[in-house]
Write a protein that binds this DNA or RNA. Sequence first.
DNA 1: CCAACCATGTAAGCTGTTACATGATTGA
DNA 2: TCAATCATGTAACAGCTTACATGGTTGG
Lengths: 183, 183
Amino acid sequence: MRITPLGYALIGLSVTEPRTGYALRKVFETSPLGAFSSSPGSIYPALAKLVKAGLLVHVSATESAKPIYTVTGAGQKAFIAWLAAPVEVEDVANEVDNVLLRFAFHEAAGDNADTSQFLFSFKFALETHLKNLHAFMASEPGEALSNHGRLAVENGIGGYESQLIWADRALNVFSKHKIGGPK
Amino acid sequence: MRITPLGYALIGLSVTEPRTGYALRKVFETSPLGAFSSSPGSIYPALAKLVKAGLLVHVSATESAKPIYTVTGAGQKAFIAWLAAPVEVEDVANEVDNVLLRFAFHEAAGDNADTSQFLFSFKFALETHLKNLHAFMASEPGEALSNHGRLAVENGIGGYESQLIWADRALNVFSKHKIGGPK
DNA sequence: CCAACCATGTAAGCTGTTACATGATTGA
DNA sequence: TCAATCATGTAACAGCTTACATGGTTGG
């Protein structure tokens, strides 16, 4: 059974701190990170599915009757695997948001996720993708691209370059802990 | 009936040049613009829906039997309205891709869409959104945001700032044609 | 002739959305 | 008490994906 980004986000939040369904919804409502809907129609079914898959459990606190979602061992394992997977070119090409979601949750994994390694793979994927975009620009016969077309592609290039700059800055922060190169 | 981004993309491509369904699919397969799937299961149903809505017509060329999709008057009208609508803050917050798609298609609309006006509204929306993000950062008590959290928000800010720079550059290109201010 | 590509579609299934329904708790 | 918020869910629907089905054309 495939886990969606929303599913991983729910697991990640539960790893950081077990919460009720409502509390999870509130996080999506107030946090600027992650563009997930906070509607009950998305959260509750997603939670139920994760419980059925054995990644979350719905436990009741000893005294009060408020049931909260907590991560199982299988949930932990799936979560770590998701975090640690190297960033591929396709990831940066059409789901950079997911990459950033993963990065943000590296915190919840503590030492289990190698953030420097992750950032190196991100950087490498960005460089590869940028190379592809430049190649596309070069391959187009000068007149083929109008002002609009050229600017649109340049917009994409600018965005990826800014990601590259960010990745370097982030690497600076995390390289203190560990020295490593691209996988 | 609501038209999806894919629908507008199909209309826009048909405005530029009437094509067969297969030709439209090929565009999505080869162009780096727009992250739309080129699978038949998405394109053909979408085209059928647009035809049923009266925005496209499926015409056969006079001699050959190859039927191609062409835009109707209603299709033109809906397309122009989509292009010309000012960019709102919510647009930049979670669907910048759509904004760029609209920009790219301004070309197909010729003089019917005021690109400078559009870019001004984009810039304004970006500035507003950036103000919101900075406000969020400031509202967080210093310790609340970890390295990961702070860097993730900074990634977002960096991205929007690069969009802002792009918007200025694009405005430079289009301001030759028309001088205007934000709406 | 046969593989590869052109070309169009349908069916099942998954996700998420909107809207509705329900009831408990809490503060003015 | 009454409005607002807490809290959980369901039902209908829209949209896209994967996979399958089908047949025509073309080049080696």
